[in-house]
């Protein structure tokens, strides 16, 4: 019966990690739909969220502020950075090739990582969890049997990460469907020129989209760092995994990003847990192998395979 407990345990940690990928993937999606730019600096927002949470709570800096103050600050700082990046991306001449826009985001990623390394050093850093007490080991067996069949232990922070992901998805759905700004953003995603014609200030909205996805990234960073620890370069891997999820889900596809993000997380932990070690050691490559396969077989994401009607783009 051990394998049931093991599978459940792997699933839970996979979903927690996958939730972070999903949030990052959503960030890619929001920016891609409004600008058609793949923002390679997306992962750095996760890093900003984690590192500012560490900076303002850690003893050595003498601040030790409570998390309910620190996390909003981290999110706000990241949003401002996102806004700036959006502003910079609007600068090049209108006929600039998309390649130069992509390279600008690569540059921003390198720059942010450099600043973080300069400011906070290269060591891994501890970030405090949102709540200190972990729930007692969950025992699903107790429901059917008198206890101890499939014991599963969950960190409270894992629950936070999953909860935040769900809240963000609900919030974003409401935002895009119910608010004026959200609807305007969707209009920009569908047709930029049309949106401009009906009086939507496109460049301001694009900057807003950047700020939004940056804020989401920072929140994900503050939430995952207590589990994973933080460091100046964590954004690169997070960004790439989130990016892979966004592509697998279909760039610009909201639901696809979420599903693909969570799936990727689960696949990684299950791969590491159930494949023989000779293969499990390549688990970091899984995301990229899937990414390549999807690009080759169905570049609009795996969901496009059976859902032929897809948004018109590019």
């Amino acid at each position: 019966m051990g394998w049931i407990s093991n599978t459940l345990q792997s699933l839970i940690s996979g979903i927690a990690v996958g939730s972070t990928y999903a949030i990052v993937a959503l960030g890619f999606t929001i920016i891609f739909s409004s600008t058609e730019v793949v923002n390679f600096a997306q992962g750095e927002f996760v890093m900003i969220g984690a590192m500012i949470s560490y900076w303002l709570t850690y003893d050595d800096f003498g601040l030790r502020w409570p998390l309910y103050v620190v996390v909003p600050i981290a999110v706000a700082v990241s949003a401002v950075v996102g806004l700036l990046l959006g502003w910079v991306l609007m600068r090049p001449r209108k006929d600039a090739s998309p390649i130069s826009l992509i390279i600008i985001t690569v540059g921003a990623s390198v720059l942010l990582q450099g600043i973080a390394g300069n400011q906070w050093g290269k060591d891994a850093v501890p970030v405090p969890p949102f709540t200190a007490v972990d729930p007692p080991p969950l025992d699903l067996g107790a429901i059917f049997h008198n206890g101890s069949l499939f014991p599963v232990s969950v960190q409270s922070q894992q629950l936070w990460v999953m909860g935040l992901m769900v809240l963000l998805v609900i919030g974003l759905t409401l935002f895009f469907n119910k608010t004026m700004v959200g609807k305007a953003l969707r209009a920009v995603a569908v047709n930029k020129h049309g949106a401009r014609l009906v009086g939507i200030n496109v460049s301001r909205l694009v900057m807003g989209a950047f700020a939004l996805s940056a804020a989401m990234g920072a929140l994900a960073g503050a939430a995952i760092a207590p589990i994973s620890t933080g460091n100046y370069a964590m954004g690169a891997m997070m960004g790439l995994k989130g990016f892979a999820a966004a592509i697998v889900g279909g760039l610009g596809n909201f639901t696809g990003s979420i599903v693909a993000g969570v799936l990727l997380g689960v696949l990684e932990t299950c791969g590491a847990g159930f494949l023989p070690p000779e293969f499990a050691q390549y688990k970091d490559a899984f995301a990229f192998i899937i990414l390549l396969l999807v690009l080759f077989i169905s570049p609009n994401g795996i969901f496009a395979l059976w859902r032929r009607k897809k948004a018109v783009r590019a």
Binding site: S97, I103, V106, A108, L111, G114, N118
Partner: peptide, 20 residues
């Protein structure tokens, strides 16, 4: 520390914004 990385980032951004 890391000044080289910071400068790379700036080069990429500045060159691409002004001289795509």
């Amino acid at each position: 520390r890391d000044i080289d990385v910071i400068i790379y980032g700036l080069i990429l951004i500045v060159v691409m914004v002004f001289l795509p």
